[in-house]
Design a protein around this nucleic acid. Structure first.
Lengths: 210, 210
DNA sequence: TAGCGTTCAAAACATACGTTTCAAACATAC
DNA sequence: GTATGTTTGAAACGTATGTTTTGAACGCTA
């Protein structure tokens, strides 16, 4: 377990390939050969491909989830007011900065989230709901306090819409970057898009009721 | 070619299974056995699995695309003003009503769109861009006329955000329906959600610049 | 150094996949 | 009614996949 370690090399490579090509389209052979480890190592260390997928998610989602929990607790203690601006910019900062060492990591974060969400009924979505439903509820509560006049049901859907806008856009960003380059002669980064995303989300979530 | 026809039975079944489980996770054997046709029929009639996927998209996207084109032309002729409200409610009506005979069809429409969008670099996305980029540009132009004060680049991203919110939410609706049922004792339909979606999209797209 | 649990490497296994083959069944025109 | 082009049916092909097996290499403890 000296070097980057077999387990970590597998996780790193699997994470990148899953984000790039999807789960079903990424074979264990592709992962292990690119990682420079033996094919059997995945089943030895993780048990199965499905377990590897969950391990990948756990490793990249747990830090984010814990950081979000900590920041929300900090807000509660310091009495920072619950506003859509505060909450949403908090999330975007965390999503972009949970792994500050590697900027490419943010892109992988969003791609993986998108893959997980658009995944068929598979157990991945249930797993994510079980594992990270609590922190999501907590965020939803804060948002409700920020918009006390809004019916919870309406707010629930608007948060979902916002989630969709964020994950969907950032997850398909490679294609969108190219379009933006061709049509507007403009290079964009993840940070650019989240900066543009914030007013959209605030405008959408706080829009007047129908 | 009397009965529902082998080709149509394949398309119907493939459409449903693709929407439900994804492309890679749906085998030709699953499609053909459920459709009650021979395995070789897919390769005989379509040539390959990839071609079948494109055929499925063509069949469900072309009517929508043509209807949208017609409606936009109608707006131009009758001088209907370009407003975000008019344009977005037009799209939602079309997405929900292009196949008015089958309500389940709307759900499949959104699920397939989500699958296509979250798909890896594969040729599907290029195909969709080539095939339906024109009508999308036309819609973008109308939206620009509705919001002349907004920089085109900003509008481009906001339309993408809106697309994400719509497709993402409606594509993952089965899970969200269940959450809504458990947490709010509330049954929701595709039409309910698009009704809620409209104010969100308008609020987001017309939000003040950062 | 001997022993033992852990990790790695190479190969094989079983299965599922997309695709192809080829003959039979069918429909249609002459 | 025969001939011709089209569609179907059953089987096989080749390949890629996830997984398992077996034994060697390694690291640590006694």
């Amino acid at each position: 377990m000296a070097q980057p370690g077999t387990v970590d090399r597998i996780l790193d490579t699997a994470e990148a390939l899953f984000a790039q090509k999807g789960f079903a389209e990424t074979s264990l052979r592709a992962i292990t050969s690119k990682a420079g480890v033996n094919l059997a190592a995945v089943n030895y260390h993780f048990g199965s491909k499905e377990a590897l997928i969950q391990a990948v998610f756990e490793r990249f989602l747990s830090p984010f989830s814990e950081a979000l929990n900590a920041k929300l607790a900090e807000m509660e203690e310091t009495g920072t007011p619950d506003t859509p601006e505060n909450l949403l910019s908090l999330i975007s900062r965390l999503a972009l900065g949970t792994h500050p060492d590697d900027p490419r990591r943010a892109a992988i974060f969003f791609r993986l989230s998108g893959q997980a969400y658009s995944q068929p009924v598979g157990h991945l979505r249930e797993y994510l709901h079980k594992q990270y439903g609590a922190v999501f509820s907590r965020l939803q509560d804060h948002m409700q306090r920020a918009l006390p006049q809004m019916p919870p049901r309406e707010l629930f859907w608007r948060v979902q819409f916002g989630l969709g806008a964020a994950i969907f856009t950032l997850s398909g960003m490679e294609s969108l970057k190219e379009i933006s380059r061709n049509d507007f002669n403009m290079e964009v980064t993840e940070a650019d898009i989240t900066r543009r995303l914030l007013p959209f989300l605030i405008g959408g979530i706080t829009a007047p009721m129908p």
